[in-house]
Amino acid sequence: MTITRTNPVGLHGTPGYHHVTVVSAGRTAYLAGQCPLDSTGALVGPGDVGAQVDQVVANTMAVLASIGAGPEDVVRTVIYVVSDDRSVLGGVWSRLRESPLAAAFASASTLLGVAQLGFTDQLVELDVTAALP
């Protein structure tokens, strides 16, 4: 299996992600949205977007490892942040790009500010698709 990431000529530059991710063949894993919940189901870091990003990263790393994949196998991410403040959105992007999951965000990625997520006080959620090695 080969994963190719490209930015077509004529499109705007990106802050780390690629416009297109192509997988040659193989199996694909669609992860449930990863939330900032600990192993007991408790929300981590109410009001603390950084703590919630860190928990989402830890949960995503655990899920990927459970299927024999790593951040480099991720082909698509969608990041949901409860905020309409561009500096908050940018801060989440930066924290993700500096995390152990950073390689996942070199693929096709979308960052969205939203009004609300599923759990009370939840600020971040991450949707991931991976091509299995």
Rank of each mutant, 00 (worst) to 15 (best):
I3L: 09
P8M: 08
P8N: 07
V9T: 14
G10C: 07
H12Q: 13
P15C: 06
G16N: 03
H18E: 00
H19G: 07
H19P: 05
V20R: 14
S24R: 11
S24P: 04
S24M: 02
S24C: 06
A25E: 10
G26D: 04
G26M: 09
T28A: 15
A29H: 12
Y30R: 15
L31N: 04
A32Q: 11
A32N: 10
A32T: 09
G33T: 07
G33R: 14
G33S: 15
G33W: 08
C35N: 11
L37T: 02
D38M: 11
S39R: 12
T40N: 10
T40R: 15
T40V: 14
G41L: 08
G41P: 03
L43V: 05
L43W: 07
L43H: 08
P46R: 07
G47L: 01
G47S: 03
D48W: 15
D48A: 05
D48T: 00
V49Q: 06
G50N: 08
V53M: 11
V56W: 04
V56N: 09
V56S: 06
V57E: 00
V57N: 01
N59F: 10
T60P: 02
M61Q: 12
M61E: 07
V63T: 07
L64T: 01
L64H: 02
L64C: 02
A65P: 06
S66C: 13
S66Y: 10
I67F: 15
I67S: 06
A69I: 04
G70A: 12
G70D: 10
G70K: 08
G70Q: 08
P71Y: 05
P71I: 03
D73E: 11
V74R: 03
V75D: 00
R76A: 01
V78M: 06
D84G: 15
D85I: 01
S87G: 10
V88K: 05
L89F: 04
L89H: 13
G90V: 02
G91Y: 05
V92K: 00
W93T: 01
S94W: 10
R95A: 07
R95L: 10
L96W: 01
L96I: 01
E98Q: 12
E98G: 04
S99Y: 03
P100R: 14
A103T: 04
A103F: 01
A104I: 02
A104G: 02
F105A: 01
S107P: 05
S107V: 02
S107E: 00
L111V: 02
L111S: 00
L112C: 15
L112F: 10
G113H: 13
V114F: 15
Q116V: 11
L117M: 10
L117D: 04
G118E: 14
F119S: 09
F119Y: 14
T120C: 11
L123A: 08
L123I: 00
E125G: 11
D127L: 15
A131M: 06
